[in-house]
Design a protein around this nucleic acid. Structure first.
Lengths: 228, 228
DNA sequence: TCAAAAGTGTTAACCATACACCCATGC
DNA sequence: GCATGGGTGTATGGTTAACACTTTTGA
């Protein structure tokens, strides 16, 4: 590694933001106001400032463009094909983000904004190589949700088991056996049974649980592996 | 994403190169000739040219600095802490690389070079944040070797089963039951039995096999998952 | 009393694990 | 003929998968 006088590329971050809809996964996109790809939908993101870390840049852009903050965020992949941006050489570090329903509400608050949730099954055409970034975010989510407890990031802190099961069914796109699911998930002892019930529906109320993250982290250090 | 007049960071690639030693994993490092960290050992790598893709840059640096080419190479993580390089803002896209024994020989050929293999257990102090990059390369290798057939990348095209088993024992740092291992690995039908034997040792010759990559890719598309 | 979703156990099939001896070769 | 690692099968325990009815509530 010697001295370096060649031109530097621009570096951006882009975020694939997943949320749980009623029956499917949704992704938060923004509509571009500037060329290139003006008026196209795109992943929220932007240029990395010279004095901030990559993750800081991702969180900053996330907040600026969508109002979303304090969420699960993990680096996905870095895209650097020379021609991926028509303006100049732009290297993009992609992140994926999981938001809870309570974060969804920001959608309403910031509705002056150009951000919108799209069901995965009906995405608009995306700017740049964002469709491919989104696809690998989805692939990562599907793969990781089975052996790390990241699915809880898509649910409220207190949830009912049918809700948890539904989340897995939506992400994995396959039905899950109710009894086996309950046996397995309760068998981990990572769910804390609360003395509360969801009475908002007009039927038998479901018991609420929360995920015991502290306990999970302890077990993980001892070599325990979460698995669905 | 608007126009962008801020300074651009430099972008580098760094490679964590794994090879199998007799009894342990080894990593290929180079000794730096320039400041900062002059004479320190470091991961091979360097600046990304403005017109080459990230992977192309990684392969180019790999060849230039170590003579290694045509190997398994996969993106690992992108490191962008603002102070990780004392000279200027440098964002590094890290790759991990798996080389076969036949690629090892380049070590001898290019021994004028400043590249050397180090057993994982006796690494020298590393420049920049390379120790942490190396650690996550190792973590990735350990995690991935169990559910993707990447371990074969560390072996010659034709290998004997005890050799394959040893590779897993070295990477996973735990003993593997010989009979169960053979049952499982042969049960996948992904190993092709050859009519050749390893007669180089002074004992009962071991049968040679090769990994059937084509078959694996077909099965994978149908949802098959390799697992050890 | 009805509709709708919550909640609960048992059995059978499969898979993972543990384990010990004979074989083929070169010296 | 001996030392060395190569090669082979079975039995057990644990895990996963399949499956149907009762309970609770609000309307």
């Amino acid at each position: 590694m010697y001295t370096y006088n060649y031109p530097h590329p621009a570096v951006t971050v882009d975020c694939v933001i997943f949320g749980l809809g009623e029956q499917e996964l949704e992704v938060l996109l923004i509509q571009r106001k500037a060329e290139p790809f003006r008026d196209s939908w795109a992943l929220p993101g932007g240029f990395v400032h010279i004095d901030e870390s990559l993750e800081d840049a991702a969180r900053r852009e996330l907040k600026e463009e969508t109002g979303v903050e304090n969420v699960f965020l993990e680096q996905l992949f870095t895209y650097g094909e020379p021609a991926r941006d028509p303006r100049e050489r732009v290297i993009s570090v992609a992140y994926y983000v999981l938001v809870k329903p309570s974060d969804f509400k920001l959608r309403a608050e910031s509705d002056a904004s150009d951000a919108r949730w799209f069901p995965l099954k009906s995405l608009p055409p995306l700017a740049f190589d964002h469709a491919s970034i989104l696809a690998s975010g989805l692939q990562r989510l599907k793969g990781k949700v089975r052996y790390e407890p990241i699915g809880f990031e898509l649910l409220p802190a207190r949830f009912k088991l049918p809700q948890l099961q539904k989340m897995y069914e939506i992400i994995l796109e396959q039905p899950v056996d109710k009894r086996n699911f309950r046996k397995k998930i309760l068998g981990t002892n990572l769910l804390v049974q609360l003395d509360e019930f969801d009475t908002s529906e007009q039927r038998r109320p479901a018991r609420l649980y929360r995920f015991d993250r502290k306990k999970y982290l302890q077990l993980k250090q001892k070599g325990f592996n979460f698995e669905i």
